[in-house]
């Protein structure tokens, strides 16, 4: 059976891991390479690095970081944050990243999805979206949740997949940072809308939240950050719980 994946997400700022509540109030939670090794040992199925400063500040430390991680950790990892050209994608993939997530740059220029998919294959292109409820639907937000694009989340993921995105990283802006569980309704709707794997993100506050997102939606992976970084829960504990609940795991 294909295992449901547990993906620790490391938000990177100036080479350090940070995680803020609803993207504000950043806190320092450690060294990315050390954390990557730690999560690999713990049984994480994949890793995700998001450079959250990328939209505002320049950084090439990310490439160095990717190289370091790729030399020491042998599980797949995704890198994202302000990547807006095929050239940048190539640099990061060459440095050892397996996938690239694109978010606001894909909204500005949707050709980036098809160009990336054509150059490296759909499996390398993860479309990340930040969605926030607006009455009976969800709008797509950018700039860490500060700006509403007016795009409908379901329509946007469908378009992204049609253009060549091989995976969706779905963050609920309503759930993110609340620790009250994943946004099950949104996740369900996105999973039903596309025929590529969906990674649920935002809101995990306890073991049961992870079990719930797998039991109640057909998502493929769960992204976790602060819950893991502050050692409230371990990957091992999550996997033991998944096993108990008969969710396919590694």
């Amino acid at each position: 059976m294909l295992a449901k994946r547990i993906i620790p997400c490391l938000d990177i700022k100036e080479g350090r891991v940070v995680k803020g509540t609803q993207f504000l109030n950043l806190r320092d939670a450690g060294d990315p390479v050390e954390l990557a090794k730690f999560y690999n040992k713990e049984g994480a199925d994949e890793l995700c690095f998001l450079d959250i400063t990328a939209s505002h500040e320049k950084r090439k430390t990310l490439i160095e970081l990717v190289e370091k991680v790729a030399s020491e950790v042998f599980i797949p990892f995704t890198v994202g944050g302000g990547i807006s050209s095929v050239e940048e994608m190539r640099d990061l993939l060459r440095a050892g990243a397996d996938k690239i997530t694109i978010n606001s740059s894909a909204i500005k220029n949707s050709d980036l999805i098809s160009q990336g998919a054509k150059a490296f294959g759909s499996q390398c292109i993860v479309l990340a979206i930040d969605a926030k409820r607006n009455l009976n639907s969800w709008d797509v937000y950018v700039k860490g949740g500060r700006e509403n694009t007016g795009l409908d989340a379901i329509e946007w993921v469908k378009k992204g997949v049609a253009l060549g995105a091989g995976e969706i990283l779905l963050t609920s802006m309503d759930a993110d940072g609340t620790k009250e569980g994943y946004d099950l309704e949104l996740t369900k709707r996105v999973v039903e809308a596309v025929n590529v794997p969906v990674i649920a993100s935002g809101g995990a506050g306890k073991l049961k939240d992870v079990v719930d997102v797998f039991k109640k939606t057909n998502c493929d992976a769960a992204l976790l950050a602060s819950l893991l970084h502050f050692k409230e829960v371990s990957v091992k504990q999550i996997k033991d719980e998944m096993l108990k609940e008969l969710i396919a795991t590694r």
Binding site: M1, L2, A3, R5, D45, S122, Q123, N195, D220
Partner: peptide, 11 residues
Amino acid sequence: AKKIPHIGWND
């Protein structure tokens, strides 16, 4: 398969 590509850890 409903979802393609096949991505992830399998037996």
